[in-house]
Design a protein around this nucleic acid. Structure first.
Lengths: 345, 345
DNA sequence: TGCATAATTGACAACGTTGTCATATTTTAT
DNA sequence: ATAAAATATGACAACGTTGTCAATTATGCA
C-alpha cells in the first residue's frame, strides 16, 4: 500500500519527526538513528508525498509556460527541464498558451495556474520570456522565474537569465557565406516578436558591414518562423532581376522552405544558390542537400535555467547562488547546402 | 494573497463546509446560499488548492508516460491530453521513460511516480501501451489506465482502450499503389515492438494477396522508425538486380530516408519510384516531392483517451461510462510522391 | 561527582481540503 | 397545531508532511 513517514518511523522505532529530519537532511540526528531510519526507508521503499509537502508550503513544483509552436524545441526544452526537476525532487506543471493570446491574458493564465497548483516558479522561454509587459506583471505578482532569451550581452537581470548570443552566431554564419565569395546574400527573417530574429539580422548586417558591403534592403525580407514563409519569400526574392547567390534563413524551417522554392524554380543548391538555416532541427540533417545551420544545446540550456530557478525558489539564498551571467554561443555547423560539393576523384 | 475556502466562507457568511459543497456541486444547498457563495467565489477569484485535494485522497492528477522518441507525436499527444485534463480540472504529470529500459524498470518508475505524486491513473501510448508485461503489472498494482494501441479489432479491454486500425489504412495505401500499376512494392518496416509495424505489414500483405500477387520476401525489410533506417534499407533494396517500383514506408521518417536514398542513387520520384509514408508528420508536406501518407488525429485521440481515463478514475462508475469500442481509421492522403505528375498543359 | 549547557528527540499544531456525523431548520403528514 | 421526517448547515477529524517548541539525553567543565 501507500507508505507514509509514520510507517517508516514505526519500523525504525523512532518518532516520525526524526524520519522527516533524515529525509530532509536537516542534521541534528545521531548517526546510529540515521542509519536505522535509512534502512527502514529502503526496506519500505518510502517516497515522500509531494502533495503534503506542497500543502505545507514547501512547494516542490515549477511551471513550464510556452507558446512556441515548434515541437522539437518544446520537447527538447521539456526534457532538459524535467531532468533538472527530477534531480531536485521537483514536480513540473506544463502549460502551453495559445500562441495568439495577448500579454494580459497570458499573465492571467499564469497567475491562475500558480494559485491552483502552488507553483513556486516558472521557466520562461521565447517569446514569452522576452515580453517586457509579461515580465513586469510577473514581477508585480511576485512570481519567481528564470528565463531564456536571445541577446548578445548579459541582460539586466543576469542572475536569473540565460542568454543565447544569436547575433554572434549569425555573424559567423554570414562570414562563412562571405568566405564562399557570396556578395548578394538574402536574409529571410523570422517572427518579429522573437528577439532572436532581430539579433540574427543584426549579426548578418555586422558581417556585411565588416566586409564593406552595403545592406541591400531588397534582400532583407520580413516573415515568420515557418516553412511556408520561407517558401514564399524565397520565391519572391529568386524572381528578382538580380537574384541573390545565397540565402541566410532565420531558422531551419524557413531554410527548408527556401530549399523547396529553389527546387521548384530549378535553381540548384548549393551550386547556384547557397542556403543556411539556424537551430539544428533534426530534419536539417535530412534535407537534400543537408543544411548548414547553428546548433544550440537547448536541453542543456533548459536544464541550466531550471537549476537557476530552483536555486531561486529553494530559499537557500545567497551562499551558493551564482550571480554571474549565463551565456551560450550557438555552434556553426557547415553542411552541404552552403558548400560547393567536391568533385568526385 | 492566497484565497482559501475559509476566506470565501467568511465573505459569504457561511461555514467553509458549505462552500466546499457548492464548489463540488454536492447538492443539498439552498439556492439562496449557493448564490451568496458563488458571488463570493467570483469576487475573491477563488481557486481550489489541488494539493490539499490530492492529499485528502481526491486525486485530480493523471500521468502521461511515454518512451517514444518522435517529438511531434509526443507534443500532439500532450496537447490533446492537456486539453482534456484542463477541461476536467485535472493536473498532469509528464514522465518520459528511457527508451531502452526493460519492462520491469519502467513499471518500477511508474509505480514510484504514482506514489510520489498521487497519480490517479495513466494515459499510455505505444509502445508501452502494447507491452503485455507492463500492462499486467499495472493491473496487479491496481493502477488505472487508458491506452492507445494499434489493432484492427477491438481489444479485450475495449472500454479503456482506443485502437487505431493501421492494418486497414496500410491496406488502402497499398491498394493506392497497386492502382498506379505498381507490382513490385517494397515494404520498409518499423520497430518490431510497436504493434503498428506488424499491423501495417499485415495490411500490405492483404492488399497484395487480394491482387493475386505473391509477397516477395526480398522486398520486405525489417528496420526502425527512423530516417537512417529508411535510408539504409532503401539503398539496399534499390541496389537489387530487380529493384521495386514503389516503396511503402512504415512511417514518414522512413519514407523521408527512402526519398533521400533514391535521390542519392539518381532515382527520380515519383517517375521511377513511388514512395508512401505513414503518420502525416508536418514535414511530409514539405519534402520534395511531398509524401503520400496516412493521417491520424493524434490530439483528438489523446483527448479521447484522457476522457476515458478520467471517467474511469472519477468514481462516477457505471452510469455514464461508455463501454463501446473506440476505433479510429487513419485517413489516406495522396500527395506527389506516389502519383505521376501531370504534364504541364 | 554535580551542574550547566549543548545536542538530540518527540509532541503537537498547521497547511486547505473533503468526509462523517451531529445539529438546526424546514417541510410534510396527521 | 404538532410530531415526524426530510433537508440544510456546521463542527470536527483526517490526509502526510514540516515547523515550533518543549522534553529528554548526552557532553563539558569545575
Amino acid at each position: 500500500m501507500k507508505v507514509t513517514i509514520k510507517d517508516v518511523a514505526e519500523l525504525a522505532g523512532v518518532s516520525f519527526k526524526t524520519v522527516s529530519r533524515v529525509v530532509n537532511q536537516e542534521g541534528g540526528v545521531k548517526a546510529e538513528m540515521r542509519e536505522k531510519v535509512q534502512s527502514a526507508i529502503e526496506k519500505l521503499n518510502y517516497q515522500p508525498n509531494l502533495s503534503a509537502r506542497r500543502l505545507r508550503g514547501k512547494s516542490a513544483t515549477i511551471g513550464f509556460i510556452y507558446n512556441n509552436p515548434n515541437s522539437n524545441y518544446v520537447i527538447t526544452m521539456l526534457h532538459g527541464i524535467l531532468a533538472a526537476a527530477r534531480a531536485n525532487a521537483y514536480e513540473l506543471v506544463v502549460h502551453p498558451c495559445e500562441t495568439e493570446s495577448d500579454p494580459a491574458a497570458i499573465v492571467e493564465e499564469i497567475v491562475a495556474l500558480t494559485r491552483r497548483s502552488m507553483v513556486a516558479g516558472l521557466v520562461l522561454t521565447p517569446p514569452i520570456s522576452e515580453n517586457p509587459e509579461i515580465l513586469a506583471k510577473l514581477d508585480a505578482a511576485e512570481i519567481p522565474y528564470s528565463r531564456i532569451v536571445s541577446s548578445s550581452i548579459p541582460p539586466a537581470d543576469a542572475a536569473r537569465t540565460i542568454y543565447i548570443d544569436d547575433r554572434q552566431a549569425a555573424y559567423q554564419i554570414t562570414q562563412h557565406l562571405l568566405a564562399q565569395k557570396h556578395e548578394r546574400i538574402c536574409f529571410l527573417n523570422g517572427d518579429p516578436e522573437h528577439m532572436s530574429s532581430g539579433e540574427r539580422l543584426e549579426g548578418y548586417k555586422q558581417a556585411l558591414q565588416e566586409h564593406k558591403l552595403a545592406v541591400d534592403e531588397s534582400l532583407v525580407l520580413e516573415g515568420h518562423y515557418t516553412f511556408e514563409s520561407g517558401m514564399e519569400r524565397a520565391q519572391q526574392v529568386l524572381s528578382q532581376d538580380e537574384p541573390p547567390t545565397a540565402i541566410f534563413a532565420c531558422n531551419d524551417e524557413i531554410a527548408a522552405g527556401a530549399l523547396f522554392a529553389a527546387r521548384m524554380q530549378g535553381v540548384r543548391v548549393p551550386e547556384q544558390l547557397a542556403i543556411a538555416g539556424f537551430e539544428d532541427s533534426p530534419f536539417s540533417r535530412q534535407t537534400w542537400p543537408s543544411l548548414t545551420t547553428a546548433k544550440q544545446p537547448m536541453d542543456e540550456i533548459a536544464q541550466h535555467a531550471t537549476e537557476i530557478l530552483i536555486g531561486l525558489v529553494s530559499g537557500e539564498d545567497g551562499d551558493e547562488t551564482d550571480y554571474s551571467a549565463h551565456g551560450y554561443l550557438p555552434e556553426i555547423i557547415v553542411r552541404e547546402s552552403s558548400t560547393h560539393i567536391n568533385k568526385q576523384p
